[in-house]
Computed example of a mutant assay.
Amino acid sequence: MEPRKVRVDKLSYVSIPISMYLDETKQKLASGTGFIYERNKQYYLVTNWHNFTGLNPETKKSISRHGGIPNVVTFSLLIQEKPHIQWKEFGVNLYENNKAQWLVHPDHKHKIDVAAIEIEIDSEQEIILKPLNKIEFDDIEPKVADDIFILGFPYSLKGGGRFPIWKRGSIATEPDLHIDSLPKFLVDTAGKSGMSGSPVIFRRSGIHGVVGGKVSLDSILGTVENFVGIYSGRIIGKSELDAQLGIVWKKEVIDQIIDGNCKDEIKFA
């Protein structure tokens, strides 16, 4: 009997589960989501600032009850697609000589809860990289109320193998506007622990590129999709059922962070 063909969405390859450890004790402190991003022929692991630090970006206090600060991040990369899909675990030190090695936004620093750390890929290693920004997306910008999908690992759950869970939601605020004078918008979804750092994809079906109610040669019929940002957790109210709004940092902050080449000033004590 021939093996069953497995079809996997190209975007499911993009999200990767990450874990934060304290190297001295080998204790796992937290888990989250990240993705690979390529710029200037370098590769970066992109996720939330609070994943790397274990700190709330607004208060700079520990997020977890144990109060541990990670100094290593591990993540899974694809090493084989056929005949069977296989991944391998890799690790990166978050600090060197007690100094942080990840990049933050050059202007807003940790106020933008996104960070990128360079990963060195040995040419002899058989790694199949799937950088998010090398995916061919549609040149269509999102609108308020568009459907979005957060591709992550809630409670470290996986959708078979090491593929992500596609958590559905919708854009809750005007995406062209800023929230709190920062490049972020809100989404209507019930986010869970472990989804922090997930790429957010919008999808829309129908006729696109209609101007003044008229279809033109530039109009598109079908489903379009685009990368819109990085999920960084939910707004927590008095109960878990309050509002169920999540924060998404706009995609342009990634290039700003990498091009700014500004390492975090936080130190590992």
Rank of each mutant, 00 (worst) to 15 (best):
D23N: 07
R65F: 03
D113K: 02
D23G: 01
L94F: 03
N98G: 11
K82E: 12
I63N: 13
K5P: 00
F75E: 00
V114E: 04
T53F: 01
K5F: 02
Y13L: 10
N71C: 09
N97V: 06
G67R: 04
G54E: 07
T47D: 14
V92M: 14
L22Y: 05
W102S: 10
L103S: 15
E89L: 12
F35M: 07
S12A: 04
V6R: 08
N98V: 11
A116G: 06
I79N: 13
N56K: 15
T59N: 02
H110R: 11
N56D: 15
N48C: 14
L94I: 14
S31Y: 07
T59E: 09
I85L: 14
R39K: 12
T33N: 03
M20P: 02
D107G: 01
G32V: 07
Q86S: 11
V104C: 06
S19V: 13
F52W: 00
Q101G: 01
N98K: 10
K82T: 08
G91C: 03
V72Y: 07
K99E: 14
W49R: 01
K82L: 06
I79E: 13
I85V: 15
T25E: 09
E81K: 11
K111M: 08
S76M: 11
V92E: 10
T59L: 04
Y37A: 08
N97R: 13
W49M: 01
E81N: 04
Y44S: 13
H50M: 14
D113F: 08
K60N: 11
V46Q: 07
T53Q: 00
L78V: 12
I69R: 15
S76A: 12
R7P: 00
S76H: 05
G67M: 11
Y44A: 01
K10E: 15
T47W: 02
N40A: 10
D113R: 08
A30H: 04
D113I: 08
K5Y: 01
A115P: 11
H84D: 07
Q80W: 07
L55T: 10
K28M: 04
P83K: 10
